[in-house]
Computed example of a mutant assay.
Amino acid sequence: MLVGLVVPVAGVPTAVGLLLYFTGAAITVARAKWYSHIPFPLVYAAPVAGALVLDLVSRRPVAGLSCGVSGASSGGRGGAGPGPPGPGGACRCP
């Protein structure tokens, strides 16, 4: 889990794995009909779910995919406007 602090790509699979683990724990408790203990794995899963949601919401565009206007390119229109959008034909920047 600490690797996710240095390598952000590793954080999402780790969070998904923990959510699956705690969901399995809650299902196991429910199957054992020990309903008073179901909140315990869910309490541990809640911060993981929150961190995963915040991470996915705050994602930024991938480095290397530029959306800005290239100062040197006029898009072949003789200076009539900005150049073409970034790779793929669509700008993904906010």
Rank of each mutant, 00 (worst) to 15 (best):
G81E: 14
T14N: 13
P87Q: 11
T14C: 09
R59Q: 15
L54W: 07
S66V: 04
A26H: 07
V16G: 08
G86N: 10
S58W: 11
G83A: 13
Y35W: 12
S74E: 14
L56P: 06
A32T: 04
C91P: 06
L18K: 13
S36L: 07
A30I: 06
P87L: 04
A80Q: 14
G50N: 04
P85R: 01
G71T: 11
K33W: 08
P82L: 04
Y35G: 07
G88S: 07
V16Y: 11
F22G: 00
S66F: 08
A26Y: 07
A63R: 12
C67D: 15
L20A: 14
T14I: 02
H37D: 08
L42E: 03
V43E: 09
A80V: 04
A25Y: 03
R60V: 15
G68R: 14
P87E: 09
D55V: 01
A51F: 06
S58E: 13
G86E: 08
S70T: 10
L42T: 01
F22T: 05
R31P: 00
L42N: 07
V29M: 13
T28E: 11
S70K: 13
R59E: 12
A32E: 15
G17T: 12
G76W: 05
T14G: 12
Y35F: 12
G83N: 14
V12D: 12
P39S: 05
W34C: 02
G81L: 09
G81Q: 14
A45Y: 06
A25M: 14
R60Y: 10
P41N: 05
P41A: 00
R77S: 15
D55I: 01
G24N: 11
R60I: 03
A32C: 04
L54R: 09
G76E: 04
A49W: 02
P41T: 00
V53S: 08
Y35T: 03
G86P: 08
S70F: 05
A72G: 11
A49Y: 05
G24K: 09
A25L: 15
L20V: 04
P39A: 01
L18F: 13
T14Y: 11
G81R: 15
L52I: 01
A45C: 05
P61L: 06
H37Q: 13
P85I: 00
I27R: 14
A45P: 02
C67F: 10
A45K: 06
L19Y: 02
A49R: 02
S58H: 14
G50Y: 07
A51Q: 08
G11S: 14
G50F: 06
F22A: 02
S36P: 00
G89M: 03
G24C: 02
A45V: 02
Y21A: 03
A26Q: 07
Y44S: 08
P41L: 01
P85T: 03
G17K: 12
G64I: 01
S70G: 10
V53H: 07
V48F: 07
T23L: 08
A49S: 04
A49M: 09
S66T: 14
Y35Q: 03
P82W: 04
G81H: 14
L20P: 00
G75M: 08
